[in-house]
Simulated scan of single mutants.
Amino acid sequence: MTKHHLVYLACTAALVGSALGATPSSSVPTVHVVNPGESIQAAVDAAKPGDTVLLTPGIYRESVRVTTSGLTLRGVGRSTVLKPATTSAAATTAPSGETRAARRAADSCARAGNGICVEGADGSPVEGTTVASLTLSGFAKNGLWATGTDRLTVRKVTAEKNGQWGIAQERSTRGVFAQNTARDNGDAGLFLGNSVTSEGGATDTRGAVIERNRLEGNRTGVTVRRLRNLTVARNDITENCAAVFIVGDETPPRAGALTVRENRVVGNNKYCAKTARLPFLQGSGIVLTGAEDTLVTGNLITDNAGTSPLSGGVVLFKSLVGATNERNRISDNTLERNAPADLVNTETDAADNAFQDNVCVSSTPAGLC
Results as ranks from 00 to 15, higher is better:
R206Y: 14
T68P: 04
T23D: 09
V176L: 14
T158W: 00
V34C: 08
N338T: 00
T129Q: 05
T30W: 10
T334R: 15
G17F: 05
L20Q: 14
L6C: 01
N328M: 08
N269W: 10
L71V: 09
G138S: 03
R219Y: 11
L9C: 09
A102P: 05
G186E: 01
L20G: 13
L15H: 10
P29V: 13
T251L: 12
A140F: 03
A305I: 12
D184R: 15
L82S: 03
D107P: 05
P29M: 10
P57C: 06
P340F: 09
A10C: 11
E211D: 12
N269H: 08
G37E: 01
D349K: 04
Q356W: 14
A351W: 12
Y8W: 11
D45F: 02
S39A: 09
H32V: 08
N325Q: 06
A182H: 02
N325M: 08
N240Q: 06
C11Y: 15
G148A: 09
D349A: 13
I246A: 13
D204F: 07
V314Q: 02
L71E: 05
I246G: 13
V209F: 14
G163N: 12
S319T: 09
E127L: 11
R74Q: 08
D122C: 13
P340C: 08
S363Q: 00
G248D: 01
R100K: 04
A255N: 06
R174T: 09
K318D: 10
V344H: 11
R103V: 07
T56A: 06
S319W: 05
L230V: 03
G193A: 07
A291T: 14
P125L: 14
G97F: 12
V33P: 00
S27G: 11
